[in-house]
Design a protein around this nucleic acid. Structure first.
Lengths: 196, 196
DNA sequence: CCGAATACAGAACAAAAGTTCTATAATCAT
DNA sequence: ATGATTATAGAACTTTTGTTCTGTATTCGG
């Protein structure tokens, strides 16, 4: 045996559906998702997923995405100096999801891991993750992902009368003035560091 | 005139519902949301929101959350050195939402704006946003939000035989050994910097 | 092989969700 | 004031969605 249980087989398919549609499937969609012909079977399958917490139900019995799988609206506090609000104030706080905050163009945005310390003086450390928007036009001072003479690198972008130059944020490295080929592949829109 | 249009008045209410439930309302829910008694009215209101892109429809006419308002699964590239994948490779990329990546405990996580340069040597700059998890136990080396003698501050946390000390990441400031009161209000889980 | 448990099919059913029709009130420009 | 436009109410109706019942395969341990 050790054959994967039906449940385990179906779980990733369901998760994929939720990712793609942003909502829970209906029983009919479960039928076509798992190639079962009976609504009863679909209902039983749905029940298992609800039990497992992969799906939830609305007040009227419809299938829904459970809270923990949803985009989290984070409460926004003022500043470090202000500290945490009292429970009474907390209800008044504005909320924002990280997506809303950081991603303007979902189709062209990528996550990229930072290697090396060439941007360390700009507070971009090795191991950080950056969100890169592809196809965006770089402006002076932007942090860009560029391909210079076949090498991929992250630098500050500047353009003046004498052409384009790429400046690292680390005195150990020197400014690059591309000789042969230069492609600005994307602009770094945000920096993310996971601490714990 | 200049009175807010009904539509503009209702928009934040709807957005709040979507935020809270993670799904689109039904016509009946629209009725109670906007205090209208007719299903027809609700249907018309829904139509307006669909037109405006605030809501969408499933293949069977049910109301849904539109793609741009959903959690965005970002494609994960390897590292800066590897550059961007070719279109052929792109389909194979793993995806992750920022929520999945950064938020372990949604109920106790807050966004907080960084003021001051006390953590600058740890790559946390003024203007950055940090995600703070409240109620988490701090471990040696963690970055914490603390309330020392009535003052809110962000520091590195250390605990040894002589007690707790809070160290800034900036030589301009000195280590704090709390005299009267110390409350570790939260642990900084991640740092976010929006560049463009 | 046998019985129990599980998975599935098919159909009838009940409830929910959305559409459409008619009619009344409110608003607004002229 | 008047006609046009818009917002709303109420009800009938269609479609979708989910439940439940009955019966048939399939699997699995002994």
């Amino acid at each position: 045996m050790a054959a994967k249980s039906k449940f385990a087989e179906r779980l990733p398919v369901l998760e994929d559906f939720i990712h793609k549609t942003g909502r829970a499937p209906t029983l009919d969609e479960i039928r076509s998702l798992f190639k079962v012909r009976s609504k009863n079977t679909a209902s039983i399958i749905a029940g298992k997923f609800v039990e497992a917490g992969t799906l939830a139900r609305t007040g009227t019995g419809r299938l829904a995405v459970p809270p923990q799988a949803r985009a989290t609206p984070l409460r926004i506090l003022g500043s470090v100096a202000a500290g945490f609000p009292s429970p009474a104030e907390e209800a008044l706080l504005d909320t924002l999801t990280l997506d809303e905050y950081l991603i303007a163009h979902p189709e062209s945005t990528f996550m990229l891991k930072v290697e090396g310390d060439s941007m360390i003086d700009a507070g971009i450390l090795p191991g950080d993750t950056v969100l890169v928007e592809r196809g965006r036009t770089a402006r002076n001072g932007d942090t860009v992902i560029a391909c210079v003479d076949g090498e991929w690198t992250m630098k500050h972008f500047y353009k003046d009368k004498s052409g384009i130059r790429l400046e690292p944020a680390n005195i150990k490295y020197t400014t690059i003035r591309p000789k042969r080929t230069l492609a600005i592949e994307g602009v770094v829109c945000s920096v993310i560091r996971k601490l714990v």
